[in-house]
Design a protein around this nucleic acid. Structure first.
Length: 560
RNA sequence: GAUCGCGUAGCUCAGCCGGUAGAGCAACUGACUUUUAAUCAGUGUAUUACAGGUUAGAAUACUGUCGGGCUCACCA
């Protein structure tokens, strides 16, 4: 790519993304024995992991988004080609049945199977549960335009034999690896811990039914080059699920899909086999990542560079958990704001815990807009301090331009009292006559979000009331007056009509305030509203008249 | 128990390779308006948790204390 940023300048940049990218350089220098050079695989590998037992979520987005930012930074530090791989750990066993998935019985009958062997409970063309979720991950990532390569543990690695040479080595160093992990484990677990789990056919099943044996110990290596080894089952904890009881022995090849590594070891296996240069991890995984790095060292390699980001908390400072349903979900955010604003949020200080709840959304959107608006005019040093640089990889597209803030838009949609984008656009044009949905597509998206916000949070609060006799007479007079008027007149003209209708129906001068309040309460379902003359001008004369007629017929109350 | 981050204006937070403390919201004042809201303009006298040391100078780096919190220690 063209060098938009001078390398020296990039080296001086101290934002976390560049600090991380420098960490990658440091790793390359160590691996290259003092020289930074292109790795044998031909590129620098940035990896993010994904567990396909659930759907992609806000954490998935955060990792891919942030890793991409580091990769973009790295591209300013070095000419070495880069690649981002989103790795799906889809050989992992199905441990429990997710409650938010159809065909619960189907899944209950597949416990213990690798996810890519679990039948697909969804009505999609994918053969397995794992593959279905993989596809979900990809379409999720694609919807944001991430530039990545998908990799399946089952298909691309275990079964393809890609991990075999590393597995061979793990077999040789089995005890060493096991010993390294033991200090981390509780006593009970340590007794039966194995870094490698053989995958066997469940006993007593006619159909193919692969299950992962977790409670085994390596007893001997029969043929190292074929990966053939003997394992002994250590207890009866999985007897019911697998048919294997304590003391039974299994001799088989662990190559070509014959085994699965325990997750800490699996991480190490992947890092070593693929020579991963960078992978970040959430704080909940720090210990595991440290141990995985130790295992990589035992294998003779060096773990990837990468840092530990803090977790997201809810409004009360508690960890966001999908099962508890606290905090904000991906869907919540994307319902009310563009993904660019979420990327902006992800850029903000990943090393300190952030509260992620509803109120942060509008602020994130407006801060994103502020930075995006000024990026292209800044000098290179300033650009590197601008979050928008990281979100858009250097240049903000013209289509992102928006002359109006999200906060203003939220006010506008409230005032406009509309679920119609076109009406909202008329209000926007009053502020910024040059803006159109065509020349400001990002603003057009924002109007959609603002309307959604209005629908979900403002509209339910509305309470329309019935007009009394005097109000009824005044409203009726106003409707009649408006029906004889045309669009396109000054707001003052309409305002005069509103005042006349009020005065003619008996409102004294000091009482007119009540007349306006009545309009809002009866027509808009709220105690306050826009200047009414302007409202008519923007909403439309005929439309306003129609609205009044509806109110008089009591339709608005029923609708609400 | 181990680890990691946090403690700055009423609220949410920014500032943290050291140089007299900022934003948004809230509040208040004014302008505009034949109502209100919006909009526009303006208004911030915070022991930067506490203590100590380093420095010509510390919210910022260091040491300690207190407070409250996440995560890990069964599984991944």
């Amino acid at each position: 790519m063209t060098k938009d940023i001078d390398t020296d300048l990039a080296m001086k940049c101290r934002t976390w993304a560049f600090e991380e990218a420098k960490g990658v350089l440091k790793r390359l220098r160590a691996v290259g024995k003092g020289e930074v050079k292109t790795p044998e695989k031909g590129y620098v590998l940035f990896e993010t992991g994904y567990g396909p037992s659930g759907l992609p979520h806000i954490g998935t987005f955060g990792e891919v988004c942030r890793t991409t930012m580091v990769m973009h930074a790295f591209q300013r530090l070095s000419d070495i080609p880069t690649k981002l791989i989103c790795f799906s750990d889809d050989m992992d066993g199905l441990r429990k049945v997710p409650t938010n998935v159809p065909n619960q019985d189907l899944l209950r009958g597949a416990l213990g199977m690798p996810l890519t062997s679990v039948p697909n409970p969804f009505d999609t063309e994918h053969k397995s549960f794992g593959e279905h979720n993989n596809a979900r991950l990809c379409s999720f990532l694609d919807s944001f335009g991430f530039d990545y390569e998908f990799m399946s543990a089952t298909k691309d690695c275990y079964h393809a034999g890609r991990f075999d040479s590393t597995l061979r080595q793990m077999l040789v160093q089995y005890d060493e690896i096991r010993t390294a992990v033991l200090p981390l484990l509780g006593e009970e677990r340590a007794a039966t811990y194995s870094p490698i789990f053989p995958i066997v056919q469940k006993k007593g099943e006619d159909k193919p039914y692969p299950v992962i044996l977790h409670n085994v110990a390596l007893r001997g290596i029969e043929d190292l080059d074929q990966g053939i080894a003997t394992f002994e089952v250590m207890d009866d904890s999985e007897a019911e699920r697998t048919g294997y009881k304590a003391g039974e022995r299994i001799t088989q090849s662990i190559f070509k899909g014959g085994c699965k590594a325990q997750w800490r070891a699996d991480w190490a296996l992947r890092w070593y086999a693929m020579d991963v240069d960078y992978e970040m991890a959430g704080k909940d995984l720090v210990t595991a990542a440290d141990y995985a790095a130790k295992i990589v060292q035992i294998l003779g390699g060096r773990g990837p560079a990468g840092f530990r980001y803090e977790l997201f908390l809810d409004e009360n400072g508690l960890k966001i958990s999908k099962s508890k349903g606290n905090g904000l979900s991906m869907e919540d955010w994307l319902t009310y704001a563009p993904h660019e604003s979420l990327a902006y949020y992800m850029f903000q200080r990943p090393t300190s815990a952030k509260k992620l709840f509803f109120d942060v959304i509008p602020k994130a959107v407006d801060e994103y807009i502020t930075f995006a608006e000024k990026l292209n005019d800044q000098d290179p040093a300033q650009k590197l301090d601008n979050p928008a640089w990281y979100i858009h990889d250097g240049v903000v597209p013209e289509t992102q331009h928006t002359p109006v803030s999200f906060a203003l838009l939220l006010n506008l949609v409230n005032v406009a009292n509309t679920e119609d984008k076109n009406v909202l656009w008329r209000f926007i044009k009053r502020y910024k006559p040059e803006a159109t949905p065509e020349n400001a597509p990002f603003l057009d998206r924002l109007t959609g979000f603002a309307i959604q916000y209005y629908k979900d949070f403002v509209l339910p609060e509305k309470t329309y009331r019935e007009p009394d006799d005097r109000e009824r007479a005044a409203l009726s007079a106003l409707a009649t007056a408006l029906e004889s008027m045309e669009d396109g007149q000054e707001a003052e003209e309409y305002m005069t009509a509103v005042f006349s209708a009020g005065k003619d129906s008996g409102y004294e001068k000091d009482e007119l305030r009540n007349w306006f309040q009545a309009l809002y309460q009866i027509l808009l379902g709220q105690d306050q509203g826009p200047r009414f003359g302007s409202f008519i001008a923007l909403y439309g004369v005929k439309e306003t008249a129609a609205l009044i007629r509806e109110a008089l017929e009591g339709k608005l109350i029923k609708a609400a």
